[in-house]
Design a protein around this nucleic acid. Structure first.
Length: 499
RNA sequence: GGGCCCGUAGCUCAGCCAGGCAGAGCGGCGGGCUUUUAACCCGUAGGUCCCGGGUUCGAAUCCCGGCGGGCCCGCCA
């Protein structure tokens, strides 16, 4: 047993000894009321007595005087224990039983040290939870191994305030999006995650099996088709914030499980939705960050981005002309095919002009040039089987995508509400599936039947929350803004001896 | 799916190219220290060198296979 994982063994023996001494190392509650450290720090009253609780993240011993740092809900305060000011029992207890990582309750007088730091002169102390492992790095420093950071995100958040800040922004963003939508009269609804037919996007789904029905079902790849059923049902303005699941590869912009906000509004079109979207992105930024100017890394260099509306609107064909110098609209199919092979783009399901154009747009224009917020509008009709054809351009659909920092943040349509046209689009998708496009949209009879009951003219929006948070936080990897990103589970032997 | 790189103490890493006793700093533990805050000073413990196989008198080091991770490219948002 000599040399068995030293720290944990040592601390487990402390835990045992505490129990032997009749001291519960995991009491049910602090012995006195606690005030959040944040409040103490916000308006400190020197010489007043405070009682606070938190995790011990630093200990500096000076013989008869010990300074230690407490972190409570992300907020740090220094405490001191002086041999001359407390009972021998208290001082020895701290010395012997309190380690980095432990939660403690302390009460004492507030004062400023010689160096001017606000400090609690501890006069009472209680161990609230014994940690058997100490934090891997000192508080305020960064864990550098990305594998540890993503697998044990709680440590990453625990010890690095900048990481915690990213998630504070994430969850405040979701909160403010809700408020923004509620303020505008949208009703927050819920739709099924498990679906018999997936739809609303081009993606491969996760499959699951429903024992009660003895059927294979799917995890949703979007919220779209059920939210439209709410519009059909007579709710005029609905939204949902929820997880989508797409069985695709993982990279800096994609996680198989990600968060979307989708909204649908009766009697609106994609122009209304553009105004809604830019208002939302700008307003939420101001409310969460206090500013609508952010910095985002583009090719490693921070670029200032202004999120205040209005955003630029440019049609997809015009964007091609402006940024790529190509009039792709009037390019013959042969030359488009040449471009495809030059950029080694394969089209599953065979060549189709509209889809080819969109792929080329993603490859050549999107990430490269659309840094300041830009709505790219009017996509080829065949690439958008759930969007309504353009009111004056029969070859296009009333669709837009929002790009910021080269990242695609949103996708929106004037929604298709003609059931016959929807059915024929679904048939085309089915044909493409037969030709090998695994991401083609499956035919959803139940949805077409719902449309047959009549859906008012509707504008809809899908907004990628993770990517919005990336823009807000100046982060260029989606893993940084997802609390627990998908990582392969790892087999490991726990090094411990029971007893 | 294709390519490149990485895996050694709790953490950060050196050692690998050119095979020969398993190393440093931080952290831990013990001691000292009553105003520090990455405290300081002295001492000390701590290892499945990612896993498996091969070459060799001898492998952290060379070779093969695997696992895990990162980045780039292709694709979905």
């Amino acid at each position: 047993m000599v040399g068995m994982s030293g720290e944990v063994e040592l601390r487990r023996s402390l835990r045992r000894r505490l129990i032997e001494l009749g001291i519960n190392p995991y009491p049910h509650a602090p012995k006195g009321g606690v005030v959040p450290v944040r409040e103490v720090v916000r308006s400190p009253v020197p010489d007043s007595t405070v009682s606070v609780a938190g995790r011990v993240v630093g200990i500096r011993r000076h013989g008869g005087l010990v300074f230690f740092d407490l972190v409570d809900d992300g907020c740090r305060i220094q405490c001191s224990v002086s041999r001359g000011e407390v009972s021998r029992e208290l001082f020895d207890f701290f010395d012997e039983f309190v380690d980095l990582g432990d939660f403690v309750y302390v009460a004492g007088r507030l004062y400023y040290t010689k160096r001017g730091e606000l400090t609690v002169a501890v006069s009472d102390l209680q161990l609230l939870a014994k940690a058997l492992r100490s934090p891997p790095v000192k508080w305020g420093h960064r864990i550098l191994d990305p594998e540890v950071r993503y697998r044990k995100r709680y440590l990453d958040i625990m010890v690095t305030p900048q990481i915690r800040r990213i998630f504070e922004i994430r969850f405040r963003t979701i909160e403010e999006i809700r408020k923004f939508m509620w303020e505008r009269g949208y009703v927050e609804v819920e739709t099924p995650v498990l679906q018999p037919i997936y739809g609303g996007a081009a993606a491969r789904p996760f499959k699951t099996y429903v024992e009660a029905l003895e059927e294979e079902w799917y995890l949703r790849i979007s919220l779209e088709l059920y939210l439209k059923r709410f519009i059909i049902a007579g709710f005029n303005k609905v939204f949902e914030i929820g997880k989508n699941f797409r069985n695709e590869d993982i990279d800096v912009e994609h996680n198989p499980e990600f968060t979307m906000m989708e909204s649908y509004e009766a009697y609106a079109d994609y122009n209304d939705i553009m105004r809604l979207t830019e208002e939302l992105v700008g307003t939420v930024a101001r409310r969460v960050l206090g500013t609508d100017v952010v910095e985002y890394p583009v090719k490693g260099e921070p670029v200032e981005i202004n999120l205040s509306p209005p955003y630029r609107r440019v049609s997809l064909y015009d964007a091609f002309r402006e940024f790529a110098g190509v009039d792709i609209e009037s390019l013959p199919d042969d030359e488009i095919k040449e471009y495809l092979s030059r950029y080694s783009i394969r089209l599953p399901g065979g060549y189709e002009r509209g889809r080819a154009v969109v792929k080329l747009f993603d490859r050549i224009v999107g990430r490269e040039y659309l840094i300041q917020p830009t709505f790219v509008t009017d996509f080829p009709k065949s690439s958008s089987p759930l969007a309504k054809p353009h009111r004056s351009r029969p070859d296009l659909a009333e669709r837009f995508e929002l790009y910021i920092g080269g990242v695609e943040l949103a996708n929106a349509y004037t929604e298709l509400n003609d059931p016959e046209l929807q059915a024929s689009y679904f048939r085309e998708e089915e044909e493409r599936r037969r030709l090998g496009d695994l991401e083609a949209h499956p035919f959803d009879w139940d949805f077409v039947e719902a449309l047959e009951h009549g859906m008012p003219p509707t504008g809809g929006l899908g907004l990628g929350i993770d990517r919005l948070v990336m823009v807000y936080t100046g982060t260029d990897s989606i893993k940084e803004v997802i609390p627990f990103p998908m990582v392969k589970p790892r087999e490991f032997e726990q090094k411990r001896v029971w007893g």
